[in-house]
Simulated scan of single mutants.
Amino acid sequence: MIHIITDTGSDLPKQLSDEYNISMIPLVVQINNEEYLDRSNIEPKQLYTYMKDGAVPKTAQVPPALIKETLTSYAKNGQPAIYITLSSGISGTYQTAVLMKNEVLEEYPDAQIEVFDSQAASLGYGLMVYEAAKEAKEGKALNEIMNTLQHYQKHLESIFTVDDLEYLLRGGRVSKTAAVMGTLLKIKPVLHMEDGKLFPLEKLRGKKKVLGRMVELMKERAESLDDITIGISHADDTETAQALKELIIEETGNRNILITMIGCAIGAHAGPGTIALFFLNTPKKVY
């Protein structure tokens, strides 16, 4: 069976990674000059507590040696594996993984190891990982799973909003003036992923309007919402995530909705209160 590997930026719920035996490589976050491994020796809720207390966390790539060690463990046992990474548009993890894969192949030239750039973040590529793991468990071939991943990469929609523009200001996503005025006027941006990078889409006043607009955008962009898994991730805001879920059910009838907390890798940049919505704009093809 093909083994699926990902990193903690995928925010895949632990029960799913355990159920499908998915290898999870921890991303690195630095807080108050201390280095932590995401979901290993720090949990997302702890990160958001630090941030609410004024800490300014930074993120770092997975140590190359850890990626190489993981890939080598499958190569030397002759087990095919696919590593699905955080978008290369916002992280260097994909490029590092490709370099490590090439080093592994020098030692094990017959190994079947693939590294796939999700061009997504958080549960966006968590849904890709989940689908790939289901297909691997069904016994599908490596090329079939890669085709599915390419379909997700092309058709996945990712829509975000943040609770506090200050965190986007720190990351250079908005100007200081926009952040100050946005905070005063309670303006909340709606952003989306395009070509693996995050871009502003609209600005609205009030959380309720933002959630309504996120659902409107989903209905506008999706061919069909009947046969897909919809993902919601949140940065320590279960109440709003649940409100979004209920709105989606009310507006679309789709109850196949997965909710998870945004991990340290994405949360360090987006900040507490971030809400993200993920869905395919066209149903998965059957190959």
Rank of each mutant, 00 (worst) to 15 (best):
E251P: 01
F160W: 02
I230M: 06
D164S: 06
M218E: 01
V210C: 04
M214F: 03
D237C: 12
A141K: 15
D236K: 01
T148L: 14
L156S: 06
R213S: 06
K176N: 11
A268V: 07
L142W: 06
P283I: 09
V180R: 14
F278D: 02
P272K: 00
P272Q: 00
I262N: 12
D195Q: 14
K186W: 09
N254K: 03
K245G: 02
P283Y: 10
E223W: 05
L198S: 09
I248D: 07
T260R: 01
G231P: 09
L185D: 03
L244R: 09
Q150R: 14
N254Q: 06
L185Q: 05
L280N: 00
T282W: 02
D237K: 11
L244E: 04
A270R: 02
A235L: 12
G263P: 06
D227Y: 09
N143L: 15
I249E: 15
T238G: 13
I232C: 07
H269M: 00
M218A: 03
T161V: 05
I257F: 03
G206L: 02
H155R: 11
L217E: 07
K154C: 13
G182N: 05
A222F: 08
A265I: 12
L225A: 11
D163G: 15
D236P: 12
E250Q: 12
G206A: 08
N143Y: 13
L165Q: 04
I257W: 03
L165K: 06
V162P: 07
S224P: 08
T252I: 08
H269T: 09
T161R: 00
I259Y: 02
N143P: 11
R255M: 08
L258S: 04
M261F: 01
V210R: 03
A265G: 07
A268S: 12
M193T: 07
A276V: 03
V190Y: 03
G172W: 11
H269F: 05
S158V: 08
N143G: 03
I262M: 15
R205G: 06
L211G: 03
Q242E: 15
E138L: 13
L247V: 13
D237A: 15
I275S: 01
G139R: 05
I266E: 09
G263T: 01
F279V: 05
L204C: 02
L184Y: 01
E223I: 05
I259S: 02
A243F: 00
L142F: 10
S158N: 11
Y167I: 09
F199E: 10
I257P: 00
L211Y: 07
Y167R: 07
L244I: 01
P189I: 08
P189N: 03
A179F: 04
E239M: 15
A265H: 12
A136T: 09
M146Y: 15
L168T: 14
I266A: 07
L244F: 06
G231H: 11
L217N: 05
A136K: 03
P189L: 01
R255E: 15
K137N: 09
K209H: 08
K186D: 10
E144A: 14
K203Y: 10
L204G: 04
K137T: 08
E138T: 00
Y167N: 11
L217V: 07
L191E: 12
D227M: 04
M214W: 04
G212M: 09
V162D: 04
A222R: 06
D164H: 11
Q150C: 11
I159R: 00
L149H: 00
H234N: 09
M146N: 14
G267E: 01
K176W: 05
M193L: 14
I248R: 04
T238Y: 14
A276F: 04
H192I: 13
H234S: 10
